[in-house]
Amino acid sequence: MSTPSPVLPAQAAARIGHYTVIDVRTPGEYASGHVPGAHNVPLDHLRAALPALKAAAARGDLLMVCASGNRSATACGELAAADIPAATLTGGTAAWAEQGHTLHRPEGAARAWAMERQVRLTAGSLVLLGIAAGTRYRPARWLAAGIGGGLVFSALTDTCGMAAVLSKLPHNRPRPDDLTATLTALERGYA
């Protein structure tokens, strides 16, 4: 089993042509801006993509990318368990853009919100709903308390159950044809 190696954005930019870049964010996040040439394989579809990723890794280095580096590190761990070597982009697309590297944004693509922003909106809305409803029906305040507890747990464990639920929404799911085309391109070695 190989250990994932972190790659700084400047290092990745200098060698971008040597990598097969895999963006493990949701399709909506991917459409909002991704490393040029990146293929979108959402993290929750990684297991199904292992044969294609193994084929791509046999031809060259894999670079896993997400928004901040957390999901890509998780992906590297899963790939390492399957004996597929991969590196992770330190700081993700946020660090890539902060250092002045361009993000590709497909023309006509709707500007999707990052998963973190979707979580903040949902959590904040549920807390407000719990507090507002709690003025008339006291047990509704438990909704706000539950969301607050979930956010604390999320921070302590560096996981996010709400993001897992939100990733199931239609705008965060890959269209089957898109994912199939991506996996076929990875297996055959063309972009």
Rank of each mutant, 00 (worst) to 15 (best):
Met1Asn: 04
Leu8Gly: 07
Pro9Ile: 05
Gln11His: 00
Ala13Ser: 06
Ala13Pro: 00
Ala14Tyr: 00
Ala14Ile: 01
Arg15Ser: 06
Arg15Tyr: 02
His18Gly: 15
Tyr19Phe: 12
Asp23Glu: 11
Val24Lys: 03
Thr26Trp: 01
Gly28Val: 05
Gly28Thr: 04
Ala31Ile: 09
Pro36Ala: 15
Gly37Leu: 03
Gly37Val: 09
Ala38Cys: 08
His39Leu: 04
Pro42Thr: 08
Ala48His: 07
Ala48Thr: 11
Ala48Asp: 15
Pro51Asn: 10
Leu53Phe: 07
Leu53Asp: 13
Ala55Pro: 03
Ala58Asn: 05
Ala58Val: 01
Ala58Gln: 08
Arg59Pro: 11
Asp61Met: 09
Leu62Lys: 03
Leu63Val: 09
Cys66Ser: 12
Ala67Glu: 13
Ala67Ile: 04
Ser68Cys: 02
Asn70Phe: 09
Asn70Arg: 14
Arg71Leu: 14
Arg71Tyr: 08
Ala73Gly: 12
Ala73Gln: 07
Ala75Phe: 05
Gly77Lys: 12
Leu79Lys: 01
Ala82Ser: 12
Ile84Asp: 02
Leu89Arg: 02
Gly92Ala: 07
Thr93Phe: 10
Ala94Ser: 10
Ala97Gln: 15
Ala97His: 13
Leu103Val: 07
Leu103Thr: 05
Arg105Ser: 13
Arg105Asp: 15
Pro106Lys: 06
Glu107His: 07
Gly108Lys: 07
Arg111Asn: 15
Arg111Ser: 15
Trp113Gln: 13
Ala114Gly: 05
Glu116Thr: 11
Val119His: 05
Val119Phe: 03
Val119Tyr: 08
Arg120Phe: 04
Leu121Trp: 05
Leu121Phe: 12
Gly124His: 00
Leu126Trp: 10
Leu126Val: 14
Val127Asn: 05
Leu129Met: 15
Gly130Tyr: 12
Ala132Trp: 01
Ala133Gln: 01
Ala133Thr: 09
Thr135Ser: 04
Thr135Ile: 06
Arg136Thr: 14
Tyr137Lys: 00
Arg138Val: 15
Arg138His: 13
Pro139Arg: 03
Ala140Met: 10
Ala140Arg: 01
Ala140Tyr: 02
Arg141Gln: 09
Trp142Glu: 13
Gly146Ala: 14
Ile147Ser: 08
Leu151Tyr: 00
Leu151Arg: 00
Val152Gly: 10
Phe153Ala: 15
Ala155Tyr: 13
Leu156Lys: 00
Leu156Asp: 07
Thr159Ala: 12
Cys160Asp: 12
Gly161Tyr: 10
Gly161Gln: 10
Met162Ile: 11
Met162Ala: 07
Val165Tyr: 09
Ser167Asp: 14
Leu169Trp: 05
Leu169Ser: 10
His171Thr: 11
Arg175Leu: 06
Asp178Trp: 02
Leu179Gln: 07
Thr182Val: 11
Ala185Pro: 00
Leu186Pro: 02
